[in-house]
Amino acid sequence: KYSDMIVAAIQAEKNRAGSSRQSIQKYIKSHYKVGENADSQIKLSIKRLVTTGVLKQTKGVGASGSFRLA
């Protein structure tokens, strides 16, 4: 599940300011076997996790910027 992968990526990075979408994508692609549409799936999952309150956006708008666990 992409949401689990995103949470794992943010936990692994341990950046106080949060993790960027690009760094999350890079982590997921190197640690998991994902399909061609992974980028758009990650983007959608990040937006969903922010609206449900699992992630907090520290910089930027939408799916860009930095995110950390709430």
Rank of each mutant, 00 (worst) to 15 (best):
I24F: 03
T52C: 15
S30W: 05
A12D: 05
I10F: 01
D4M: 09
L69F: 05
K29E: 06
A17S: 11
Q57C: 12
Y2F: 09
G60W: 07
D4W: 14
K33N: 12
S64Q: 12
A63W: 07
V50P: 01
Y32V: 01
D39F: 05
K14G: 15
V50C: 15
I6G: 00
I10Y: 00
L44C: 15
Q41E: 13
K43C: 13
I24H: 01
Q41G: 05
I6Y: 01
S23Q: 11
S64L: 12
I10W: 01
H31E: 03
E13A: 09
V50L: 10
K14C: 15
E13Q: 10
S23T: 07
S23H: 05
K14V: 06
V34G: 01
V50T: 04
S3L: 09
F67Q: 02
S3N: 10
Y27I: 00
A9L: 10
Q41A: 12
D4Q: 11
Y2A: 01
M5L: 06
S19N: 02
T58S: 09
I10N: 01
G53C: 05
K47Q: 13
R48G: 06
D39V: 08
L49P: 00
I28T: 01
N15V: 05
L69T: 03
Q11P: 00
T51W: 10
A17R: 11
A8W: 06
T52S: 11
L69G: 02
L55P: 00
S45T: 15
G65Q: 13
N15C: 12
Q25S: 12
G53E: 02
L44K: 14
S19D: 02
G60I: 07
R21G: 10
K1G: 07
S64P: 09
I24W: 02
S64H: 13
E13G: 10
G62S: 06
T52H: 08
Q11W: 09
I6C: 03
G65P: 15
I46C: 02
K14N: 14
A17K: 11
L49K: 01
I46L: 13
V61D: 13
Q25I: 15
M5A: 04
L55W: 01
S19Y: 02
K26Y: 07
S23M: 06
K33G: 07
K33M: 10
I42N: 01
A12I: 03
Y2V: 05
S20A: 05
I46G: 00
G60K: 08
R16D: 10
K43R: 12
S30T: 10
D4S: 08
A9P: 01
E13C: 11
N15G: 09
G53R: 04
I46V: 03
S40E: 14
G35T: 05
Y32H: 03
Q11V: 12
K1E: 09
K29G: 03
Q25A: 14
V7P: 01
V54H: 04
L44T: 08
N15L: 05
I6A: 02
L55A: 01
I6D: 00
I10Q: 02
Q11H: 11
L49G: 00
G53N: 03
R68S: 12
R21L: 15
V50W: 03
G62R: 06
I10E: 00
S40A: 14
S19Q: 03
R16E: 13
N15P: 02
R68G: 05
Q57H: 11
R21F: 15
V7W: 03
T52Y: 08
E36P: 14
R68I: 14
S64E: 15
Y27D: 02
G62E: 07
L69Y: 06
T58Q: 06
G18F: 04
K26G: 06
I6T: 00
T52E: 13
M5Q: 02
G18K: 02
S40Q: 13
Q25N: 08
G60A: 07
V61S: 12
S20K: 03
L69I: 08
I42G: 00
G35W: 04
Y32A: 01
G65T: 14
T58A: 07
S30K: 10
I10L: 08
Y27W: 10
T51S: 12
R21S: 11
I46T: 00
K56F: 11
I46E: 01
I24S: 00
I28Y: 00
T51C: 13
R68F: 14
N37K: 08
H31A: 03
G18P: 03
F67W: 07
D39M: 08
G65E: 14
V7R: 04
A17Q: 13
V50F: 02
V34K: 02
V34Q: 11
Y2I: 09
H31M: 06
L44A: 12
I28V: 14
Q41R: 11
F67E: 03
I28Q: 01
K14R: 10
G53W: 04
A12L: 03
E36F: 10
R21I: 15
N37A: 06
G62Q: 05
Q22G: 09
G62W: 06
S19C: 12
K43E: 15
R21N: 08
V54E: 03
K56S: 08
T52G: 06
G65L: 14
Y32N: 02
E36H: 13
G60S: 07
T51A: 14
K1Y: 10
Q57W: 15
I42H: 00
L49Q: 01
L44E: 13
Y27H: 04
T52P: 01
M5I: 02
V7N: 02
A38Q: 04
I46M: 05
K29N: 06
A9C: 14
I46H: 01
A9I: 02
A8G: 03
K33F: 07
V7C: 10
A9R: 04
A9H: 02
S45R: 04
K1M: 10
A70C: 08
H31K: 04
V34S: 02
A8T: 05
G62I: 05
Q11I: 11
V34D: 02
S30H: 09
K59N: 08
S64R: 12
Y32F: 13
K33Y: 08
L49V: 01
K29H: 10
A17G: 13
Q57F: 15
K29S: 05
A38W: 06
A63S: 13
S40V: 13
M5Y: 06
Q57N: 06
V61C: 13
S40G: 06
L44R: 15
T52R: 11
E36G: 10
T51K: 15
D4N: 07
I10H: 01
I46R: 00
S66D: 04
R68K: 12
S30F: 07
T51E: 15
S45G: 12
I42Y: 02
D39R: 05
T51V: 13
H31N: 07
I42F: 04
Q57G: 04
T58F: 07
V54I: 10
S40K: 15
K1I: 10
V61G: 12
Q57R: 09
G62V: 04
D39T: 08
I42L: 04
Q25Y: 11
M5P: 01
R48T: 09
Y32Q: 01
K14H: 11
S23W: 14
K33I: 10
I42R: 00
R48V: 11
S23C: 10
A8Y: 04
S19I: 10
S30Q: 11
G62D: 08
V61Q: 11
G35A: 07
K43Y: 14
K29P: 01
T52K: 12
N15W: 05
G62M: 06
R68M: 14
S23N: 07
I28P: 01
D4Y: 11
Q41Y: 12
T58N: 09
G53T: 01
Q22E: 13
Y2D: 01
A12S: 09
R21A: 15
K1C: 15
L44N: 08
K1P: 09
